[in-house]
Design a protein around this nucleic acid. Structure first.
Lengths: 153, 153
DNA sequence: CTACACCGTGAAGGAGCTTCACCATATCGG
DNA sequence: CCGATATGGTGAAGCTCCTTCACGGTGTAG
């Protein structure tokens, strides 16, 4: 019974590779990287956040967030504001330009979704989503920290 | 009609993230990295290859392959043999240990596939594979170099 | 007020990736 | 046969992402 499941895993892995390549190049065209964009995306969902909170949300070290924020700040996409009550912390805040950019990226994502899945028969699409949900459930149980759900960028 | 397709893309992206995390940690447990393993995997499929051929197959620069091979050679997983006819080129060859390791990894992959997709109803599984094939077709057309098929690691 | 915990960052380092320059070898055209 | 040109691999330099460790500034609990 290995055959069919292996075929499925193969497909998923290939999708992973191609999708990753597409994302990387698309972002590079706008001078962004995947890591920085992930942070930005999280910021859009959560609003101004502490670097510590961002580190936990992205599942990376606090030190790394410092570097990512440095880059984004250099690109004029975020600013570091003082935290109103905790003087140790800084609030990372997206700029207006960042919000405009995120808007565009969300639109682009919806367009990509239609491009990839729009041609599927509706019941096929539903089956795909349902199947992936089942797989995700098992995957989350398998991967440590799989429950940490930050909106998929 | 954006809703359903976006839901599908979300699922796919999350699977991507979790699967990537699983692969990275699993490999790290054996002292390997994704990039080096990809090269090794390609080597298993293609047999001893010149670094140039590997660079083209993986879609990375020749210089990068030098580094990856350095690492693998340091771990005793590949050796650099002189090319029989072209004295400029070197043939990267997997060691016996590497082939044993690749065997194990293939088994682990099959096991993972069963774990993730084994519980699905057979028709659901078939639908999933068919849907992903459709998506892959569009994706390959979308991504430059998407036709470059190296077995998915 | 004194521990202790916590936030952010400097320092150092590893992996992956790139481009540019360079040498050794191959190959092609005259 | 030989000079021009293309090709294979690597040193040098540099970027991003990521880590751990150390440390100073700040909050907090006893």
């Amino acid at each position: 019974m290995t055959g069919a499941t292996l075929a499925a895993l193969d497909r998923v892995l290939e999708v992973t590779v191609l999708l990753g390549r597409d994302m990387t190049t698309s972002l590079a065209a706008e001078g962004l990287t995947v890591a920085r964009t992930t942070l930005l995306w999280r910021l859009r969902a959560a609003g101004p956040s502490t670097q510590r909170a961002l580190a936990d949300a992205l599942g990376v070290s606090a030190r790394n967030v410092t570097g990512l924020v440095d880059g984004l700040a250099g690109a004029g996409l975020v600013t570091r504001e003082p935290h109103p009550t905790d003087r140790r912390a800084t609030l990372v805040t997206p700029t207006a330009r960042a919000e405009r950019l995120l808007e565009e990226m969300a639109a682009g994502q919806a367009q990509l979704a239609d491009q990839l899945f729009g041609g599927l028969a509706p019941d096929r699409l539903d089956g795909l989503v349902a199947a992936l949900d089942e797989v995700l459930e098992r995957l989350r149980a398998l991967v440590p920290g799989g429950a940490a759900a930050e909106e998929t960028p």
